[in-house]
Write a protein that binds this DNA or RNA. Structure first.
Lengths: 153, 153
DNA sequence: TCAATATGTTAGAGATGTCTAACAAGTTTC
DNA sequence: GAAACTTGTTAGACATCTCTAACATATTGA
């Protein structure tokens, strides 16, 4: 049975709550396409939250050393922030691939679901899942695993 | 990218937050082995929270019509509570099986992980995952899928 | 240039879920 | 049956994360 003591922050891969991971993920994506800077409004738009919420989150992430945020200026990732953001997006990507390629979910559902699940998967599980994916993709390519495709019966 | 509007309560399979799902799951387990009644202290012990926290949760679940809780008495599930509890435990079980049988996680890790993930998986995904499990278990039995066992390389 | 607009921040409130301390109600035991 | 113990509840505090309203700063464009 589930215990709350297992089920809390200490189990997360880093010191970020799910909510803060969402911010880190979003900032990483925006920074990559927007010339190394993310803006408060962009983050708010993409995450569907208010600008004050973004502001509060940025203060939090800044305190933890993940981002650099000048007053009324842009948001950059520190080195540790970049590592964290990449790790979080990798989790998302592997889950998404699993949901689409293996469980045959449609893109939109898979995207939604990956967003939810990415906060609760450990690095060990992720590694296993990734290995599993590679093995199956391989088998698909060799036509050895077509019987596996019947999940959406 | 993840949006908070997707990522919130409305997406959960019922009107229960992850925390309340933990309580429902626990109550279901205790009720089954303890003569249709669960006690505040038992719930607190199993979930690793304080008795006042349990009390608050029970008021919440009672308001939502999932449990019956007499003052200073035991906790029972209503019909809808039973349905919800079974559904939640089914999610847990399928995830656990996947983590152990397919990803070869040890029991303890799988248990922990299932506790975390069970709150963020949709019924569609769960159905697919279950189908997937059945297909693979079948193939294992027929010795057709041994190449799939190499996930923990 | 300066008024209008867009963007960022602060303040304050509310929801959720946790805790400890204190008290109330049952239960056990002698 | 009353004292001691266990169990359940209430009250009040705190952490997290969200919001709206109001204000501050930047940017735009006539």
């Amino acid at each position: 049975m589930c215990s709350k003591n297992i089920n809390n922050k200490k189990t997360y891969p880093n010191d970020l709550t799910p909510s803060m991971e969402d911010y880190m993920e979003c900032i990483g994506v925006l920074v990559e396409k927007a010339d190394k800077q993310a803006r408060v409004t962009d983050i708010a738009t993409h995450l569907g939250v208010s600008r004050p919420s973004v502001c509060a989150a940025l203060n939090n992430l800044s305190d933890k050393g993940y981002i650099l945020h000048e007053h009324y200026g842009g948001v950059k990732l520190t080195k540790s922030g970049e590592i964290a953001s990449i790790q979080i997006r990798k989790r998302h990507e592997i889950l998404y691939t699993f949901l689409v390629d293996i469980l045959h979910l449609d893109n939109k559902t898979a995207e939604k679901e990956a967003c939810l699940m990415e906060h609760s998967i450990s690095s060990l599980t992720l590694r296993r899942l990734n290995n599993f994916l590679e093995i199956i993709e391989d088998a698909y390519d060799n036509g050895k695993a077509d019987w596996l495709r019947a999940v959406d019966r």
